[in-house]
Design a protein around this nucleic acid. Sequence first.
DNA 1: AGGAGCTTGTGAACGTGAGAACAAAATCGG
DNA 2: CCGATTTTGTTCTCACGTTCACAAGCTCCT
Lengths: 252, 252
Amino acid sequence: MTRASSRRPGPPTRTERGIPEATVARLPVYLRALTALSDSGIATASSEDLATAAGVNSAKLRKDLSYLGSYGTRGVGYDVEYLRYQIAREIGVTQDWAVVIVGIGNLGHALANYSGFGTRGFRIVALLDADPKLVGERIGDMEVRDFAELEHIVETDRVSIGVITTPAGPAQEVCDRLVAAGVTSILNFAPVVLSVPDGVDIRKVDLSIELQILAYHEQRKSGEVALPQVPELPATNALTPDLPAVGGGVIA
Amino acid sequence: MTRASSRRPGPPTRTERGIPEATVARLPVYLRALTALSDSGIATASSEDLATAAGVNSAKLRKDLSYLGSYGTRGVGYDVEYLRYQIAREIGVTQDWAVVIVGIGNLGHALANYSGFGTRGFRIVALLDADPKLVGERIGDMEVRDFAELEHIVETDRVSIGVITTPAGPAQEVCDRLVAAGVTSILNFAPVVLSVPDGVDIRKVDLSIELQILAYHEQRKSGEVALPQVPELPATNALTPDLPAVGGGVIA
DNA sequence: AGGAGCTTGTGAACGTGAGAACAAAATCGG
DNA sequence: CCGATTTTGTTCTCACGTTCACAAGCTCCT
Ligand SMILES: NC(=O)c1ccc[n+]([C@@H]2O[C@H](COP(=O)([O-])OP(=O)(O)OC[C@H]3O[C@@H](n4cnc5c(N)ncnc54)[C@H](O)[C@@H]3O)[C@@H](O)[C@H]2O)c1
Ligand SMILES: NC(=O)c1ccc[n+]([C@@H]2O[C@H](COP(=O)([O-])OP(=O)(O)OC[C@H]3O[C@@H](n4cnc5c(N)ncnc54)[C@H](O)[C@@H]3O)[C@@H](O)[C@H]2O)c1
């Protein structure tokens, strides 16, 4: 509340062309839905059609789109190609983004083999690993290179996005190197909380967390009322009594 | 406002032991942080310590934990082992959940090779694929089985969680089969919006979307004010003019 | 025993997000 | 040219989530 002139309750905030985060997260879904419609030869779609294709409700979709501008036509709907272009431009996928992947193990290999990135908006410019045995291996039309080349590659290819698929242990160190080299957006698959300086964006993908969230809901579907019995509180902060061993491990 | 007796502003809602969704999503993070602390030999931790380890602010952490009960000690903090057990119990990872993975391609292989699930709370009971060439292949101590065996396996092993790593095309069909077989929680990696009946939970992991969200923020870091020029609106809903080809493709 | 010092648990204020509802704008048929 | 019909863009309201701030409660020291 220090700036932003005189803000009354008003709309969500929308700081000078700033789009609400929840909306930003849905734009890629709309983009994909539009592409699907386009591929089906559909030229115009109503908010209802689009909302169905994107799995949201139509009021939300219209409000989301309204943050970008007025790209629809009342009584008609949206021109699929035109809207697709507008969203792509807003997200920034009209240009190509250079990406490096660090840690070419199980997951790194899968990502490297994946054609979905290359096709649209993202270009993988390097696969990096610290393991000398992996360096030089060919994956598709790329070759695994030594992690030491990071700084050089980032500078040469103007890399702004880094993907971390190393084990949890070295992830923070790798992250620091990426940031120092000039990478300002990071997608992290390692199950650790990474800390980055201001100005660097970080997102994480965490399988174990997703499964655990599902487990929570699953538990309450079946058990419903019958939750496992709670062991009595420890008398004081006594040195941990014998509780069943349970997980959520650091390695998980 | 139809039910729930007389709801005044009151607390978030907390429908009869129901924990807010945002909190549920963070509990696994706390669980991991506690395991890390435990492994470092730390027996007691304050909300501040825990919050730092989990990458959230301490007020939020305390409020989250308060939904589970009063497991801390004022002036002291939380007993690490005890809290870890309580969270694990609440999430439901004190028991093992049987999981099937459908679609053993690049990503399915990576998941199958991953030790992180098996270690705690989740047990992969089958790897399924429709491709006869893959059926029979060994991955670790498991063997790829025919997708046709799904129903049998789900029943025998009481599978409640399914992971979909097939291409987008067959994903809905696979999903329907899973649901029909009795699976009530699904983790989907295919870039499509799956529809499921009430009572089935679904979560998605979508790489392209994550990257596109990063791209959005990246674009506004660099360009800041200088956004690419907007082409003029189409006069009417004329058949789509010549816009640059852009992505977010269905395959992505 | 009593007070000083910490740290939890929670009430209250604030901000963000979702959805219902509707006026405004466009098309179309007569 | 007008009224019926369709569908957007937006307003209003309620629900949810986050953060602050502080009383209550615990430990330890004197
Ligand atoms: N494989 C999965 O399905 C899966 C699922 C969920 C999470 N994860 C997480 O993803 C990450 C990768 O998993 P994985 O199965 O591919 O592991 P992995 O062990 O197969 O591969 C890790 C790779 O990182 C490389 N590496 C290690 N230290 C490095 C460093 N300092 N610099 C550069 N490279 C380094 C290793 O040489 C190895 O090639 C892990 O953190 C894991 O927890 C994996
Ligand atoms: N590989 C990645 O890094 C990556 C990244 C992001 C998203 N994805 C998505 O994850 C999914 C899998 O990717 P992938 O690279 O492993 O693909 P893939 O083509 O390597 O593997 C797909 C597997 O699914 C099997 N399959 C096809 N139809 C099936 C059916 N009806 N029933 C059972 N099995 C069937 C195929 O035989 C194949 O083995 C895709 O939807 C992809 O878009 C993958």
